[in-house]
Design a protein around this nucleic acid. Structure first.
Lengths: 212, 212
DNA sequence: TAGATTGTTAATCGATTAACAATC
DNA sequence: TAGATTGTTAATCGATTAACAATC
């Protein structure tokens, strides 16, 4: 009895954006907002906002609009920010260490519980008070700690094996920073970040602008 | 006389992916490929591949398929990888320094020419052989060097003013890492990265999977 | 040549936008 | 109550997929 159909990925990808705007509204003391007013701020249509939100429920009120705090908390729940995902970083290089100190992740409900690497000179060190451990101890670590997510910031050529190992340890979600499409393994969920892809799109758009 | 209509952003965003797959094919010594075979590897339809490529020209040959090296070089040109964009990093914190050492950017035609910050303890130091300079010297630096792109890895609250300053210095493209939608200023092109948005989507999908 | 595979047009699908009755 | 604005259905738009004639 699967009564509600799956929300499209296009909608899901807009949710963090709604969350950011609502957070800003809340911070500036605005308590109610109409889809019309929000659409002006976000640069999308009011129709789209109402359609998107109605995938999850009727959070508004006719003639009034939306209560900012209520809507903010609803999206917080929908996005799982209240879940407190236990997260490990695999790969304690520059990018791994940068992500470890990224302040936004904790605010969004992601708790860093461990950092792993294979490089002897790094192991035993710590980032943000969290010890860097040897990757081979991840399996034991996952038995003791219920790890939800692994952030993969490992060299390109090691990524597939590390991903495979992480999922074998029972980690169900991978956030991959290598410039490759990691294939789903052992049923794990994967988000590929592809920073250089994004930069290449910027380059394309810059050339396009200059040519016009 | 604008005879060719603008390529949709959906297509442009797939180009780096084609580029990666072709690079891999080239590395493994495969010299020709059909849209059918490539579609299997990439997990998209052959129709989409042919449609996408034909936005830019007819690179294939009936009965044969595509020459891998030729197609690779065409996409390289289309994406502007041959352009060698001069790039500066603004914000020499953890993320800025991590990006400075990210090996893929140079390979993709982005040359790091300067790093800027306002923090006195950082200025004078260097990353990857490139001196960290005071942000207020950026204007002069841009007069002496033709800077194409600024990578913004500055704190959230300083981002709008820094972006505005960078564009006033004549920089036409910004790659923004702050969790906010930077508005186009002085006609500059902007790509927002939004790492925490991506992580939140991963969290949503993980919850969704667990609930099913 | 015959088989394979492109380039391109037409059909389908899904996402966005418009419209409006319901109702606060 | 009258005005405003939602939730939702219908219309539109654009992107993806299918089909196939052209041709290597």
């Amino acid at each position: 009895m699967d009564e509600k159909r799956k929300v499209s990925i296009a909608v899901v990808k807009r949710l963090p954006r709604y969350y950011r705007y609502l957070s800003d509204l809340l911070a500036s003391g605005i308590t109610r907002i109409s889809s019309k007013e929000l659409s002006t701020r976000m640069g999308i249509t009011a129709s789209q906002i109402r359609q998107d939100l109605n995938c999850f429920g009727g959070f508004g009120q006719q003639g009034y609009g939306y209560n900012v705090e209520l809507l903010y908390n609803e999206i917080k729940k929908i996005m799982g920010i209240t879940t407190n995902f236990k997260t490990v970083i695999i790969g304690a290089g520059n990018m791994g260490r940068a992500l470890a100190t990224y302040p936004n992740f904790e605010k969004r409900g992601f708790e860093l519980v461990g950092i792993f690497d294979v490089e002897p000179s790094l192991i035993g060190g710590s980032v943000k008070g969290i010890k860097i451990m040897h990757l081979y101890t991840l399996e034991k670590f996952c038995v003791d700690n219920k790890v939800d997510i692994a952030i993969l910031t490992v060299p390109h050529d090691r990524t597939p094996e590390v991903a495979e190992y992480a999922t074998r340890c029972g980690i169900q979600a991978l956030w991959n920073f290598s410039p490759m499409d990691l294939k789903v393994q052992n049923g794990a969920i994967i988000e590929n970040v592809h920073l250089s892809d994004s930069l290449m799109v910027l380059g394309y758009r810059l050339n396009e602008k200059r040519e016009s």
